[in-house]
């Protein structure tokens, strides 16, 4: 936006001291202002010798401007006149004269901008009104949050529930193999100290529990012969077939009194470990 300020200031300093005051600076804050804006005009003089300045007895009035306050800031060499006003008419107009003790201000031009001037392109489109006049941002945000809270809460609950469900599923999927590996760890430590038949009782019980969980068939109450007839155990060279061999070997040791040394027990554990690992990996790839 093009903006500039026209200021024509004619200062008449009356009295014998008038020649001693020199105008130093004139500044509008903000530099560009529109109708209705609160504006501050700062006029700074420097002077030599004594200068008797004082605020006006009464603030002058005008139909286009509302002068709210006139104040002075004075030191040994400079004096600043601060005039706070609000213009109500666009264009360049003159502030009413005012007497400030030894100083008299006249013909102070004030250029007030209008949103209609300059471009002459008609009325500008309104700027996006985010808030109702007088609304505070914080209150608006709090109210918005309060209104959205149930939805946010529901979304958060759904997300959390899905996450918990998925975690539980993952935990459950992995639970059978974790349980079996725990038993296998215990049995590995027990090789040499546990009787082979008792060792196999524990291994086959854990294996049956694992198979029951993995296949959704009840293998706990199924005999080895019944397990062998399940469709999953009919295909050769599969981890299931290896586990079936372990069950058969277990039956022979448990019920037929077949001898099993520490080496063979270690081998069985390795076989179970490999078969279970292959099975889990194959399922994870699916």
């Amino acid at each position: 936006m093009k903006s500039f300020v026209f200021l024509i200031l004619a200062l008449t300093i009356s009295g014998a001291l008038s020649a001693q005051a020199v105008l130093n600076d004139i500044r509008f804050v903000p530099p560009t202002f529109f109708v209705g804006d609160s504006v501050e005009l700062r006029i700074t003089f420097s002077y030599k010798g004594p200068l008797a300045v004082a605020p006006p007895d009464s603030i002058p009035e005008s139909d286009w401007v509302d002068i709210r306050d006139v104040s002075l800031i004075q030191d040994d060499e400079t004096v600043t006149v601060v005039i706070a006003f609000t213009p109500f008419a666009p264009g360049t107009r003159t502030l009413p004269p005012m007497k400030l003790g030894a100083l008299q201000l006249r013909d102070i031009k004030v250029a007030t901008h209008s949103i209609l001037e300059n471009s002459h392109e008609g009325v500008r489109s309104l700027r996006g009104q985010l808030l109702l006049p007088g609304t505070r941002l914080a209150v608006a945000l709090i109210l918005s949050l309060a209104a959205m809270a149930p939805f946010l809460g529901y979304g958060l609950f759904r997300f959390s529930w899905k996450w918990i469900k998925k975690s539980r599923q993952l935990y459950r999927v992995g639970r059978p193999v974790r349980r079996l590996r725990r038993v296998m760890k215990k049995l590995k430590a027990g090789i040499g100290s546990i009787q082979a038949s008792l060792w196999y009782y524990e291994l086959t019980e854990a294996l049956r529990a694992y198979l029951s969980d993995r296949l959704n068939h009840d293998c706990r109450s199924a005999t080895t012969a019944e397990i062998a007839l399940m469709p999953e155990f009919l295909i050769d060279n599969t981890p299931q077939k290896d586990l079936l061999e372990v069950l058969k070997e277990g039956d022979m040791v448990k019920f037929a009194g077949r001898f099993a040394d520490d080496r063979s027990l270690n081998k069985i554990l390795e076989m179970v470990n490999a078969a279970v690992g292959n099975w889990e990996r194959a399922d994870a790839q699916l």
Binding site: T223, T224, A225, E226, D251, F255, A256, G257
Partner: peptide
Amino acid sequence: GRSFVLPEDVK
């Protein structure tokens, strides 16, 4: 023809 009982015999 077995000299030992298996769970399947029981069942």
